[in-house]
Design a protein around this nucleic acid. Structure first.
Lengths: 235, 235
DNA sequence: ATGATTATCTAATGGTTGGTAGATATGGTT
DNA sequence: AACCATATCTACCAACCATTAGATAATCAT
């Protein structure tokens, strides 16, 4: 009994992993039947599993085996799609990037009570916060990665290092509506930077007890950063 | 040549580590001479090395070997002091804990212009921020750990989860001076929570380009969170 | 049906990891 | 000078890691 496994016999994975068994996909696999899916579907599954695992354990905290287990295939199976562990992260980032909206989307769409030609910065932040609040896992993923990327040899180190400058330049491309007498480059640099800091701070707080509401918390800060008498006509 | 190493021959460590060679201690070790130090000194060296490495790469991002290399001894040598990798983290935390001041220190010491019997919350935050700004490595260590501890199986997970409540209870023990008509429990809960969020947000931003000044940035927020007309007499 | 393509697998490799066992040498005490 | 306690080392281990090589089977086009 229990002979040396013949070549094409499948084996149940007996993991001693940091991953809790309850977290694994219930992909029972019904022994000896390979399920073959289209690359698009598989890539999506892998991305989703990676997002879930990395948002919880960080990039350094997971292995390709963890992802493979969750998606119900072997570790080299995953590697076939992502090329390397770093490839997994790249795939994840680019995938999320074009699946989520940027300011353009907001500017085109607009928000109730805002002039599409002259969007308001605080209104956009409202939109952004609501968007993030509705995707807690992705938001957590971002928070985890942005701190993990402190390490100079982390694949995303440079990306996050340059982030503030990139954010500012990106925002500067839009014709934001401002209170009378205010100048974008002169007066809004602090506001944008501080708003990002606030959101990062709230996102850390979101992971703690007792729970708070992202939107509600942001509104408290919004009243401070964009006070009503001044921004009355622009909110 | 290159015979099987005899038992008591020392060997130069040939690492293929994630740790840059330039980061290693220049402990040349002059071959075949064990340097024996007092446990207190060694423990301090280990703590310092761990703080440095973990603040940069996270707990998951380093190995005991990394610490050993930096401190100039073998990996089991380090293990002799910390017992396990988790023990290293415990040692680090408790060590930092009693090496750094808590609000008590401030309340006793006071600050220029503040009544020792009735300290002011914004004044304490000024002190705290200045303290943290002066210890960038420890501050970064805190930021890294608090996000890494998102993972439910991270040794510090529960600690950070409970942090907000603990902070509030701790602060609530002091006879803070408040503006007229204000009640600590009723009116200051938001301020305390938001201040912590702001500091966490700033500390993330500190790791990015272009550089900002912690104290200066905090002052911007302080003016918003503790506005002058109201807190005039308490700052 | 046949065959090409390729998604997926098993097996194996070289390296690192945290941790253990036991030898050795060092510094302080007698 | 002899000795003890222990700090530190070398050697070893089992587990895990990312990655490669090559076999196999599922799907699709013909």
């Amino acid at each position: 009994m229990n002979p040396a496994p013949r070549y094409h016999e499948y084996q149940t994975t007996g993991s001693t992993q940091a991953l809790k068994d309850s977290e694994k996909e219930p992909k029972e696999q019904t022994m000896a039947s390979r399920t073959r899916k289209s690359p698009e579907v598989r890539r999506a599954e892998i991305t989703q599993a990676a997002a879930h695992l990395i948002s919880q354990h960080g990039y350094n905290g997971i292995s390709l085996k963890d992802v493979a287990d969750m998606v119900g295939m072997s570790q080299p199976g995953v590697l076939h799609y992502v090329g390397s562990k770093e490839g997994l992260l790249s795939l994840l980032v680019t995938d999320i990037y074009d699946a989520n909206g940027t300011p353009e989307e907001f500017v085109q769409t607009g928000l109730p009570g805002s002039d599409p030609d002259h969007p308001h910065l605080p209104a956009y932040f409202d939109y952004l916060v609501a968007h993030n609040a509705g995707q807690p896992e992705l938001t957590q993923l971002y928070t985890v990665l942005e701190t993990e990327a402190i390490s100079t040899n982390h694949p995303l180190h440079d990306y996050f290092l340059r982030r503030p400058e990139e954010v500012w330049e990106h925002y500067s491309k839009f014709p934001w509506a401002l209170p009378d007498g205010m100048d974008w480059s002169r007066d809004m640099q602090d506001s944008v930077r501080m708003s990002v800091e606030v959101m990062d701070g709230i996102q850390i707080r979101l992971l703690r007890e007792p729970k708070i509401d992202y939107v509600q918390e942001w509104n408290l800060f919004k009243d401070l950063l964009f006070p009503l008498p001044l921004w009355d006509g622009c909110r």
